[in-house]
Computed example of a mutant assay.
Amino acid sequence: MHVGVPKEIKKNEHRVGLTPTAVREYTAHGHRVTIQTGAGLGAGFADEDFKRAGADIAATAADVFAQADMIVKVKEPQKVEWEMLREDQILFTYLHLAPDPEQTRGLIASKCAAIAYETVTDARGGLPLLAPMSEVAGRIAVFSAAETLLKHNGGMGLLFSGVPGVAPARVLVLGGGVVGMNAARMAVGLGAEVVVMERSIPRMAHVDEVTGGRIVTRYSSIGAIEEELVKADVIIGAVLVPGAEAPKLIKREHLKQMKPGSVLVDVAIDQGGCFETSKATTHEDPTFVVDGVVHYCVANMPGAAPRTSSEALNNATLPFGLALANHGLEALKQNPHLARGLNVLKGELTYPAVAEAMDLSWSDPFGVWAKG
């Protein structure tokens, strides 16, 4: 199969769909790989690195899209990109369609097979292609919160770790999954007081066990959130409903109860955000203030560490990408977990949570396939 990797064009996005190490694996399996010139520079990979791994270098994204049978990216395609997709072409990347009707319509119109990293599953019910970026995002969320708390960045002027005789920041983490766990552990490591809200009792037990009881866990309810938000200096939103829009756990009216200069970090912003007042921001202009509360809602937090993020992402995506390259869409029939990643096929939505978020109909992917 001919695999193409265009340069990411979303603002402040420096990750790359395939690293040279991954390219070497594809070419060793007999596949042709074409990389757009400069695609890896932001992550520290030169064109020569890809050439040594066996890739061809293309001058433009149009060249990549025109030649390749499968497009491998990191972020969701932008309008100029989805307009280059074609029928029977595979797109393998993060999509986050639920809060993005324009992209959804564009992918449907292209009739491509769009497979989303974030809805591929594993035998334990996890999301293996979302997990590595969730780990990075959870850790970056804490660093970003600590920076934002400083006065010159709009925060209340609180040192995250405190000093002897002065209390550290109190951090409320909404969600005890991969993002929440990484955020909580990082925050504790930096000296903060941490509370994790979670609805899974086994997950709360896991958090308690791995942190030796250093993190307070509370069952997530409206009342418990309202009790904790008035005490929090930082709230990190780390809730996830696979493929669907994130629930809004902090409402506009809650902000008036929070400390002036406190910080909200919305790691769920790719899925619409879990704070009612959230809107996507960029690394270039990461924050805004509503009712005295600073919001940090960067939509590609792992993009701040593109080398680490690209390598971690490729470690996870490589087996699935190779399966698609080796077998085409037949790989979906062979692996039901990979099949869960299929969101759009032949002009139809095939993922129910996305359809529900947009009040659209959806079709069983194998039924669509059978139509030919």
Score class of each variant (00 low, 15 high):
G4N: 05
P6S: 09
E8V: 11
T21L: 13
A22V: 14
Y26L: 15
G30N: 03
H31S: 07
H31C: 07
G42I: 05
F50Y: 15
A55N: 03
A58S: 09
V64L: 06
V64P: 01
F65T: 09
A68T: 07
D69L: 00
M70T: 03
K73M: 14
E76K: 14
K79Y: 01
V80N: 13
E83F: 02
E83M: 07
R86M: 08
L91S: 03
F92R: 04
T93V: 04
T93P: 03
L95E: 04
H96Y: 14
L97G: 07
A98Q: 11
E102P: 00
T104L: 15
R105P: 00
K111A: 12
Y117V: 06
T119W: 14
D122G: 08
L129E: 08
L129H: 10
M133H: 09
S134M: 04
V142R: 07
V142D: 09
E147G: 01
L150S: 12
K151A: 15
N153Q: 14
N153H: 15
G162L: 11
G165W: 12
P168N: 11
A169D: 11
V171T: 04
V171M: 14
V171K: 10
G175P: 00
G177D: 04
G177M: 03
M181W: 00
A184E: 09
R185C: 12
A187N: 07
I201Q: 10
E209S: 14
E209N: 12
G212R: 10
G213V: 10
V216E: 15
Y219D: 00
E226F: 00
E228S: 07
L229S: 03
A232V: 03
A232W: 12
A232Q: 11
G237W: 13
V239E: 01
V239K: 02
I250Y: 05
E253I: 00
K259P: 06
S262G: 09
A268D: 08
A268T: 14
I269W: 09
C274F: 10
A280G: 02
Y296Q: 05
Y296D: 06
Y296K: 03
N300A: 12
N300I: 02
P302M: 13
T308R: 09
S310C: 09
L313D: 05
T317S: 15
L324P: 02
A325G: 11
L329F: 05
L332Q: 10
K333A: 11
Q334H: 05
H337Y: 15
R340V: 00
G341N: 11
G341E: 11
L345Y: 14
Y351T: 00
P352C: 10
A353G: 00
A355F: 09
S361P: 00
W362R: 05
A370M: 07
